[in-house]
Design a protein around this nucleic acid. Structure first.
Lengths: 290, 290
DNA sequence: TTTTCATATAAGCTCTCCTTATTATGGTTG
DNA sequence: CAACCATAATAAGGAGAGCTTATATGAAAA
């Protein structure tokens, strides 16, 4: 059967009003339109739906039967619509973010706090892993946004720079520093670096390799925090991210080596699907960051 | 919200086909129409529903959410439509009849049997009571049809003659009968009649009263069958309904008195609501009777 | 690159559905 | 009982939503 669904809205309202005229008012159309519409519906279904009386109309048994179904249908549609409405106004839904721990704690904590304050009904979900896996999460729809070290490209994704970070070399407070260090100079210091599979380390290796300098760290560790602590207790010179070390620098736990020229800055990018529209929550969060 | 319900049918089909073009074919409209329709829906809801790719489209999260609701709505509507369809083809539904026992057994049994054979899935419900109550049943919608003795009128009901019945006087086989009886003659015989509150008796009283004859039955009983039995064993002369006594007359258990002129015939009427359309089952049953 | 297959857009027309006006019906009221 | 009032039904014509065709656009495949 291929009945016009719109007729059912008229049927529904009419059944509720028990009057063609009243239904017409509620639907902002003429009584005549209602009458014609119901007739068409009755013809299409081959069943009389209303008993016409002078003081309005009432449903026939068949009409009653149909009404139950139409009522549930319309309720269902309205539920769907109001769900979307709430989503649109960020009164529900979820924000799924993939980001490494240090990025999260240094760049996302404040926006997340703010976001949650503005939209307390949006569930926030965080995932953290390696860059490549986080990008996969986005592609699989398991994350709306991923924050990853740039440069990085992917056909399916938009990856746009979001935050800037600077790599610097730091030493303990008692370390005797020269007024200026060349790249070669630091390469010869006792270095403490992140492990080779980290993106920061790869970046570092790459730019030093361009200058034909190879790096031979004395210590390799996995956590950024430890880089700071090790340097602080004079185990060597660490390459850390300036933005992540602000506190310790200020407190004098570590000192920044004056490198000349400084290492080029890197960006942290925000990645999301190129072809799928962003969820309202993700859009709102991105707006917050910028 | 006041979205065109028809759009949802397009949305539904498109979501199922995962392609605008395919949906267009299924719905026998152009791909362009689908495209425009979905756009309008997306604009109205303020939400992107589909992710457009080269090999068709897929639902966004929001679209998926909506789809669940729309799917259940459309299923609901289709359930309703098919229910009506089955009703129309008498593959379900019910036939509610109110009629006295003797009318049922003498006039309705065969049609009921036939009806049930033709439409075995229609539930049959019988009620029996006094005429006035049966009419009430119809007015309350608790019966589709009532079979009652005519004449009888009611503003809300159509009561049309259906079966004809003839009242006759009968006696036992050994009773010595004259060649002809006047009404006055039978009034003087030892009469066995139904109780005063039965419609047959009221009818009898009325037509005799017109001729200024009053009736003084020797025996008054409630059941039509007993009238026959009593006459048969020579307790007197009973006034019975010819059509209900055919068997006993044929067997010679009772004899018909030659009354001149005979009593006027009466009708049994079928009553149904004037303003409400008859159910398909009731219509079919009436057709069967005629 | 060119081809192909998908959706998007443009412009115009068709036909559905709505409007107004009138009729029909019956219940209500003076 | 008649006039009135409120309801739905019908008629006819007009507006515009939604369709069609044609073309553009864009991405992937060849």
């Amino acid at each position: 059967m291929k009945t016009k669904l719109d007729y059912y809205r008229v049927f529904y309202e009419t059944a509720r009003c028990r009057s063609f005229s009243d239904a017409a008012q509620h639907l902002y159309i003429s009584q005549s339109a209602i009458s014609q519409c119901i007739h068409q519906l009755e013809d299409a279904l081959g069943v009389k739906l209303f008993i016409r009386t002078r003081q309005g109309v009432s449903l026939t048994n068949e009409g009653q039967l149909l009404f139950l179904k139409v009522e549930s249908a319309i309720n269902s549609i309205e539920q769907g619509e109001s769900q979307l409405e709430r989503l649109r106004h960020l009164e529900s839904g979820e924000l799924k973010i993939a980001a490494g721990d240090s990025i999260t704690s240094h760049f996302l904590l404040k926006p997340l706090e703010e976001f949650h304050a503005s939209y307390p009904d949006v569930r926030i979900e965080m995932a953290n892993s390696y860059s490549s896996q986080m990008l996969s999460l986005v592609k699989e729809g398991k994350a709306d946004l991923a924050f990853v070290n740039m440069p990085l490209t992917d056909d399916e994704l938009v990856i746009e720079p979001c935050f800037e970070i600077n790599d610097i070399f730091v030493c303990g407070p008692d370390f005797e520093t020269k007024s200026s260090y060349s790249w070669k100079d630091v390469a010869d210091l006792p270095l403490i670096l992140l492990e080779k599979n980290s993106s920061s380390r790869r970046f570092l290796n790459a730019i030093f390799k361009e200058k034909k300098i190879s790096l031979h760290p004395q210590i390799e560790i996995a956590a950024h925090d430890l880089l700071i602590r090790f340097a602080s207790i004079h185990l060597g010179v660490s390459c850390v991210i300036e933005q992540f070390s602000e506190e310790e620098l200020k407190k004098g736990l570590i000192k920044k080596l004056p490198l000349n020229p400084p290492l080029p800055s890197r960006s942290i990018g925000c990645a999301y699907l190129k072809n799928a529209p962003l969820s309202y929550a993700a859009k709102a969060f991105l707006d917050l960051i910028k």
